[in-house]
Structure formats: C-alpha cells, structure tokens
Design a binder for these strands. Sequence first.
DNA 1: CGGTCCTTTGATACTAGTCAATTGTTGTGG
DNA 2: CCACAACAATTGACTAGTATCAAAGGACCG
Lengths: 243, 243
Amino acid sequence: MSSTACRECPLRKRAIFTPMSREEIVFTQQFKTGELVVDAGTTILLEGSNSPQLYTVLKGMGTRYTTLENGRRQVINFLFPGDFAGLQAGLMGEMKHSIEATTPMTLCVFRRTALFQLYELHPERAYDLTWIAAVEEHFLGETIASLGQRSAAQRIAWALVRIYERLKAVGMEAHGSVPLPFKQQDLADALGLSLVHTNKMLKMLRDKNLAQWQNGRLKVSNLPALATVAMIDLAAPEPRPLI
Amino acid sequence: MSSTACRECPLRKRAIFTPMSREEIVFTQQFKTGELVVDAGTTILLEGSNSPQLYTVLKGMGTRYTTLENGRRQVINFLFPGDFAGLQAGLMGEMKHSIEATTPMTLCVFRRTALFQLYELHPERAYDLTWIAAVEEHFLGETIASLGQRSAAQRIAWALVRIYERLKAVGMEAHGSVPLPFKQQDLADALGLSLVHTNKMLKMLRDKNLAQWQNGRLKVSNLPALATVAMIDLAAPEPRPLI
DNA sequence: CGGTCCTTTGATACTAGTCAATTGTTGTGG
DNA sequence: CCACAACAATTGACTAGTATCAAAGGACCG
C-alpha cells in the first residue's frame, strides 16, 4: 500500500485542525519522508535514544510514558490521530520519554534534518510547530492540575471526558461511543492511581450511568454530567494546527 | 532607572544559556519593548485574559498557577530569572493560567504583534522559541511523573533538587544556599500535598540533614543524598536558549 | 501591644494502596 | 471441541499514607 498524500490526508478535513493553504500542503508533503507502520506493542521511540525523526500519528493509538528509577511507569499522555511526537528529540537531541504503540499504528515520518530548513523557508509552518508545542504545554498543565488537585473519581472522569472529546474531534465517534483500546493499567498509570482503585472508580461511574468503558470502547451517555463530576467547564475545543 | 540593554543582560552570560551572536542580541533588543517592574503580590497575567505580551523574567520570582472550580489552586511551576512566559497567550490568544509575582519582579516585555515577524525574519530565534517550549514541555512531563508516581517525601525532595539546580544555574547560589522566598503553601500547591503534610516532610528532611528551607533560603548540604531520596539521576543541566 | 500571617505540632479520619483470590476472555495445541 | 495457559477485569479484606481539624508558637507590622 502506498503512502497517503498530504493533500488527501483524512485528518486535515476535521474542523479541529486549522485550515492549510495549498502551498502549505505542498511543503508538508516535501517535509514528509514516508510512513511508518508498526504492530501493536512496538516501541516507536525509546527514552534516551536520539531518534532523528518527527512523527504525526495518522492512524492508531499509543502511549507516551517515562519509567522512574523504582520501576513505576507514568503515562504522560495518550497518542491519538493528529498528535505530533518527537519534537523534544528533534530539538534537544534526546528523547525524554518512550512511545509505544497500543494498536497497530501508521505515522507520517518527517526528516529531522529538514527541521531547521522549515524554520528558514516556511515561517508559517514553524509558527504552527511552536503552536503545537504550546497546546501540548497547556494540556500537560491541565494534567498536572488533575493529578495535584482532583480526587480519584474526579481524575477518572476528567480523563474520560478529555479522551472522549479528543477522539470525537478526529472523527472516531460512532454509535455514541469511541474506541478506547487501552488497558485499565494504562489509565491507572496515566492518573497516578492503582489498578485496583481505578477499576473501582470505573465501576462507580458505570453504576451511576455516567460512563461505560468496556470491550475497548468508551460510551458516555451524559457528557455534561460526567464533566460536572470531573469539575470541567465544557467548552468547544479550539482548533489547532496539524503537521 | 533605565531599562537593561540586552547586550548587558546579566543572565545571558550564564553557562546554562546557549550563546547568542551579536546579531541575535541586536534583534532581541528590537523585539523588546521595555521592562515591567512589579511589586510582590502583583498578578502579572490573569487566566482567561488575552494579554498581548510576552515576558522573560529578569529579576525576582513568581508562580504560574491555575485555579480549579472547587477553588483549589495548582501551582504549575515556579518562575525564576531566565524563564519565559506568555507563549500560550501569544499563540493561542488566551491565557490558560495566571502568573503572580512572589517577590518584586522585573520582566523584559516583548511585543506580541512582533511575534510573527520574528518567525519571518529571524528563524534562529523562532527555533529557539520552539526549543524553549519543548524544554518546558519536558519539565512539565517530569512534574506529571512526580505527582503521579512519587510519594510525598520523594516529591518534596524532587522539587527541592530541581529548584536548587535551577537557581544555581542562574547564579543565585551564595554561601551554600539559594534564596527561596515562597510559602510552604506554594510548594504544597505545586506538589498536590496538604500544607500540614508538606510541613512534616520538610521537617523530616531537615532532621535527616538533607535540606534546610528556612527564612526564605534553601540550603542543601548533601545534594546527591537528597537526589537519591528524590529518585533523581543527577546530571549536568543542558543549556537552553534565552530570549 | 494586639493583630495578622506563617509555621509547627498533635490527634483523628478517610482516601487510595496493597495483598490475595476469583472470574472472565482469548488464544493455543492436542 | 475441549483443556489449559496467559492475561485482563473484578471483588473483598486489610493497611498505610495523607488529608483534615484544631490549637499553639513565632515573626513581623502598625
């Protein structure tokens, strides 16, 4: 199967992404060197390595995580279609975290060496790259606030709302639910909770008819109610650039 | 008192910051529109506002925080000299967090409207800006790992080590200690701990002779030992750009 | 000198972690 | 097609780490 052309990119059409001019599309196409297709379970980027690539997730899902000295794992965030990865290695020379494919994934691969060229020749795209970093920074800040100030139940609710929104924004909602092929352990590691307690909180939300996550799909029957539990002020997600 | 010229900038000389060419200094000077001097306690940026400015901390310290719906405060990080602020508002149009001066502060002010010009005319500086965002992203990721996976004692130790390193890197170490004019409540809010428990953990570290934080100064007699408690692999800090 | 703010300490309550065992699911080989 | 292994989800019992509550110093200021 041949590589997807940027102009045909199914993600770009989504309202969540800021529109791109034809020229931008052409340049992005040049910047793209190919596609990486990996099986579920593959480690795409390894902490400490200096992988020379930048990626955008085209299909599939993964986790971005670090491992502490005591062996505990922290999932920094989940990777969904449209997400950009590898900027830290791209600029700082070394990965500060690992990325693992949870499902089979397809990633657009960009040449890291072309990064500086991008800054010189395509300021709008460079601007977008910084924008992406700023959006990511904002999201990480919100995660910090969740881990620091929300109770276990609130954290789970918060994560489910955010995940639901993100997947919906990239068009993965169907039959009132979204695919969510992670293990409960992954969510636990993302929220700093134990697996057992995560399980109990999920059951609680299920019993209250707020969110059902089973068989790899997440169904939220009453999003506003779940957002209330999560202490989230539900707002339309702001458009962000896609690279 | 007149504004500090970029070429005289006392921060730029520090090894922690990547060197700047004369041209870069000249441009930065043009980009800078002045200085903001504020008293302790001033709110510099307010969540939700669309402040049109970008800042670099020249002197003093502050906190970057958000407030949740239930009134609890999460300190995202501390602002020290050399730190850059306002990028989110600069790109995304609205502040996602507030910034408050803890001590009197002096900030270099940059014109937000010149931001795009910077991308068009000075790709190296634009590159640096993205670099700064990536460094910040990395630091926030480490914070997430701390809140998620470290115990209270480890979190405190972690924070003190990181703070000590950062202040030392900008030349604020003197007599084997660094100034740290925050309240225990600020640290508690940064680490997602209660004030009381934070106090007890600080006492524990003090009793073990690992770290003394009193009267606005932090003294770490045995940094490697503190880093061990914190589960940190002590490494020389990597240089980052200054704007 | 009283008031305010921050730090410190003790007592108690509760959230979430750990341990252990059971159930359900999927895939494999006989 | 069934037995078994491997893994994920679930549940219950118990424990530990932190939060909460309350009160007492200390430091600073008008």
